[in-house]
């Protein structure tokens, strides 16, 4: 995500990129840094008090809490990739710190900016499909573990629930309201885990999600059923586009491209642009710290349900 966010920052009017801190810099990032003369800096120097106005955090999940806290202490606004932190204790600590320093913290729940999910929420909000009874979602991807081994350590990444399922749980909350109960099951090895999450909204609506790190390629779907109609959509990023190589091992010679949806609808650019506008005094973006924390609570409740084999009631669902 770092290269994508950096590209947005470089195009954003009124934004100067001071520097970038990372333990490892991959090829795509190195190329942008070289051509745009971006300085590589130590974390301590970058997050020194008063050094900058805002920070984008796109590290492995287990570092979000420490870096976001440092940024808040340094007086910077924060855009943090989802999940907001790895644990609820970290999230609550960050919330207390942000409240004390009146810091703005936006969270990268990008699904709120994907056009098919915006449209789905609109069908609900305008009453076009009536009262929602049940909603079914799917999010499947290839396992990220081989390329980025930290994803395979649940203590660091939170696994498939905090990588994939948290997107849909956040969207369900955003579109269908608070969730009061979660039940979940999981199967398969950690690096190719399949999870099923069943959520009950305070409205009475039911949401069901299949999420897995076991797919051959990325796939997402949703169907929302209401008393007056249903809305169904599949992944907008691949809508109308399908490239099939002649040879199975062809990946090496095919032209590479970023996520297709980034090119057309730019949900990643829009979420960060809205956060930057908020930092500059504009209205809040769609997902702020409280939303990030609620989504984390839901994903962790699902993990707890899996561990104990029982439904988990959410206290004070928001």
């Amino acid at each position: 995500m770092a290269a994508l966010h950096l590209a947005t920052l470089l195009e954003a009017p009124g934004v100067r990129v001071v520097g970038l801190a990372a333990p490892e810099i991959d090829r795509s990032l190195a190329k942008i840094m070289a051509t745009r003369e971006i300085e590589e800096m130590a974390t301590e120097a970058l997050l020194a008090p008063g050094a900058l106005d805002a920070v984008v955090i796109a590290t492995p999940t287990d570092r979000h809490s420490e870096l976001a806290s440092l940024a808040v202490l340094a007086g910077a606004a924060v855009f943090c990739e989802k999940p907001v932190t790895r644990t609820l204790a970290e999230a609550e600590h960050l919330a207390a710190l942000a409240a004390r320093f009146r810091a703005k913290v936006a969270v990268g729940h990008v699904l709120r900016y994907f056009p098919e999910y915006e449209a789905a929420r609109r069908q609900v909000a305008t009453g076009r499909i009536g009262t929602v009874g049940i909603c079914r979602l799917l999010r499947a991807n290839t396992s990220p573990v081989a390329r980025r081994p930290w994803y395979g350590e649940r203590a660091r990444s939170g696994g498939v629930l905090l990588d994939l399922a948290i997107h849909d749980l956040d969207w369900c909350r955003w579109a269908l309201g608070p969730i009061r109960r979660v039940f979940a099951r999981a199967s398969g090895p950690e690096e190719q885990r399949v999870v099923a999450v069943l959520a009950r909204h305070t409205s009475g609506a039911i949401s069901y999600l299949d999420a897995s790190w076991r797919a051959g390629h990325f796939d997402s779907r949703l169907e929302v059923c209401g008393t007056e109609g249903i809305y169904c959509a599949e992944h907008s990023g691949d809508a109308g586009f399908c490239l099939v190589p002649v040879h199975a091992e062809a990946a090496s010679y095919l032209p590479s491209e970023a996520d297709g949806s980034a090119g057309v609808d730019d949900p990643y650019r829009r979420e960060l642009t809205e956060a930057l506008a908020w930092f500059a005094g504009g209205p809040a973006p769609r997902a702020v710290l409280e939303d990030g924390i609620e989504a984390l609570r839901l994903a962790l409740a699902a993990e707890e349900s899996i561990a104990f084999g029982q439904p988990v009631e959410l206290e004070d669902p928001r």
Binding site: R181, S187, R200, I206, D210
Partner: peptide, 29 residues
């Protein structure tokens, strides 16, 4: 299972999602 009545047809559930397990440890929804 979670079940609900959203269209209020008769006196029965009209939406329902089941999540079962098998004796082998797989889940089935």
């Amino acid at each position: 299972a979670e079940a609900g009545r959203f269209r209020n047809v008769g006196d029965v559930e009209d939406v329902a999602q089941v999540l079962a397990t098998t004796t082998s440890g797989a889940f089935a929804s």
